[in-house]
Computed example of a mutant assay.
Amino acid sequence: MDLRIFTEPQQGATYDDLLAVARATEQLGYDAFFRSDHFLRMGDGDGLPGPTEAWTTLAGLARETSRIRLGTLVSSATFRHPGVLAVQVAQVDQMSGGRVELGLGAGWFAQEHAAYGIPFPEKRFGILEEQLDVVTGLWGTPVGERFSYEGAHYTLTSSPALPKPVQTSPLDPTRAGVPVIVGGNGPRRTPALAARHAAEFNVVFPELHEVGEKLDRVRAACRAIDRDPASMIFSAVFLLCGGKDDAEVERRAAAVGWDPAEARARGIAGTPTAMVDRLGVLAELGISRVYLQVLDLQDLDHLALVASDVVPQLG
């Protein structure tokens, strides 16, 4: 089981806060540091000191870490032009020595779009589909050749398709590319999109009884295009709320505004034994990678607890 740290800096964090978490992530042996891509706090509070831009942050972290993977869960297609996004991600991949992954979604938080003057179309899935076509097409175009694309939302004409990522595409090792992460709850179009473009399919805060069906839909979509379903990584995001004892669990839940019982029911939460048990259930369901949502970025002891008391029991 791969464990990755996932942060929500729009809730209130500086770059230095994120750097501290990323360094702890690396030092404690976690696989990756990921962050959300949002511009507005969710829920109550002022969001001070304000949002940090996702790919600017990851560019900085690319130069200040050396081992961990870095990426977004997820960048919103509404925030990005695919041509510019392809350049941004390829450059950060170069800056990191080939450690970047791109989670890309259709966008959903209308209020943040209004707050920063970003258009929020009613229908966005087609935009996401075309963005993935364009981004992966630009990366995968051989050096010296040109890339053109004509869709309902984007048209590119004779692009030199540069720069290239350091990495090669997990779906076609003969072409440049970074691992793409796709997730969502749609029963048909999302699995088909993941099968075509993604190295990883992610489910966000799922109910356990829903996981098997969601993964089966993606497996079926892979088979429909003659892709081996075993080539897809299946992952999930869950709140992290652990402690050495119940009192510590309750303290950490209170610090981020969660009811301890709800945290235990819905997250990777409780004592180390309880967290290991939950991760074991997820493994049985087919999940091989878990993103631990860390909301209190000052509590680095939380990450250390999982590294010392949970990871050694995972085998």
Rank of each mutant, 00 (worst) to 15 (best):
S75M: 03
Q298L: 13
G257A: 09
G184D: 08
D44W: 02
Q11P: 06
G45K: 01
Q88C: 11
M232E: 00
A77K: 05
A59G: 10
L240M: 10
T273P: 12
E150T: 15
S159P: 02
A274D: 13
R41Q: 01
A253W: 01
A62E: 01
D246Y: 04
A230F: 05
E122T: 12
V180F: 07
G267R: 10
G60P: 02
T174Y: 13
A192K: 15
R223I: 05
M275V: 05
L295C: 08
E213I: 12
R63N: 08
R251P: 03
V87C: 09
L58T: 04
H113K: 03
L138W: 12
F234G: 01
L19K: 01
D259H: 11
A32P: 07
K214D: 14
E150Q: 14
V182F: 07
L61C: 04
S66E: 04
D228V: 02
V281Q: 15
L3M: 05
R266G: 12
R251F: 04
I118N: 05
G126K: 01
D44Y: 07
L282T: 12
G98S: 07
A32E: 03
C222E: 12
G242H: 01
A20K: 13
A176F: 12
A230P: 12
F125T: 14
G257M: 07
L156V: 13
T57E: 06
G60E: 00
P187N: 06
I225L: 12
R289P: 00
F205P: 13
F33C: 07
A106T: 10
Q94C: 14
G98W: 07
G29Y: 14
L300I: 06
A114D: 15
S76P: 00
A261P: 14
A274Y: 06
E101C: 12
G98T: 08
L48V: 13
D245I: 08
D226A: 15
D246F: 03
D216Y: 04
R23S: 10
A221E: 10
G257P: 08
H81K: 10
E122L: 09
S96Q: 09
P260W: 06
V89F: 02
V290G: 12
A194I: 04
G242P: 01
S231P: 03
E53G: 11
A86N: 04
R188V: 15
A247F: 04
G71C: 01
L162Q: 15
P119V: 11
A304D: 10
E207D: 15
S66D: 05
S36P: 08
G50L: 02
S158R: 15
V87R: 13
F79S: 06
